[in-house]
Computed example of a mutant assay.
Amino acid sequence: MTIKVFDTHVRTKTSRYLHFDVLIEGNDTEKAQAHARQYLLEKGLTDEDIAQSECRFCHVEPGNPVVAQAISQQGYYILELQGCQED
């Protein structure tokens, strides 16, 4: 499975910074952005909480088994990079 990686940066109105990648099988930017919004909702952040956000295609990589399984089950995988863990 070939994975498309969408680099995502979000700054909240309270200055919290989140950096994560949305990994999907296709090259559908709108789908990646929808998965990013869903992830943020799961983190308790709504559109009203967001001051600035960006989700853009970054690169292609081969999928490892964990990522491939998640994509097969839910359509995407989130790779948390910065600021995503609650303190």
Rank of each mutant, 00 (worst) to 15 (best):
G83R: 00
T14C: 00
T14G: 00
G75W: 04
I78N: 02
V60A: 06
T12N: 00
R56G: 11
V60H: 03
T14Y: 00
I71L: 05
T46Q: 05
K31Y: 05
A32T: 07
I50W: 12
E54W: 01
I78K: 03
E80W: 11
G63V: 06
A51L: 14
P65T: 09
A36G: 14
L41Y: 13
E25R: 06
D21W: 08
Y39C: 12
Q38D: 13
C58N: 10
L23N: 08
D87C: 10
Q38H: 15
E25F: 07
D7M: 01
K13C: 05
N64W: 05
A68T: 09
E25N: 07
A70T: 04
M1D: 07
D49L: 14
N27Y: 11
T14N: 00
Q82M: 14
V10G: 08
Y39M: 15
E25P: 02
L41A: 13
D7K: 03
D49A: 15
V5I: 14
Y77Q: 08
L81K: 15
E48A: 12
V67F: 06
R37Y: 11
F57G: 10
I78S: 04
H19A: 05
E80S: 14
L45Q: 07
T29I: 15
R11M: 14
A36T: 06
A68Y: 01
D7V: 01
K13M: 04
I78R: 01
T14K: 00
P65A: 08
F6W: 00
Q38G: 14
F20Y: 12
N64L: 08
A70F: 02
I78E: 01
I3F: 01
R37L: 10
S15P: 04
L23R: 08
M1P: 05
R37C: 11
D47M: 02
F20A: 07
I50R: 12
V5Q: 03
E30Q: 14
T12D: 00
C55N: 04
T2F: 08
Q73S: 10
P62M: 07
Q33T: 11
L40C: 10
V10N: 05
Q82Y: 15
A36Y: 03
C55Y: 00
V67C: 08
L45I: 15
G26H: 06
L41C: 10
Q52G: 11
I24N: 00
H9D: 02
Q73G: 07
L41M: 13
D47I: 05
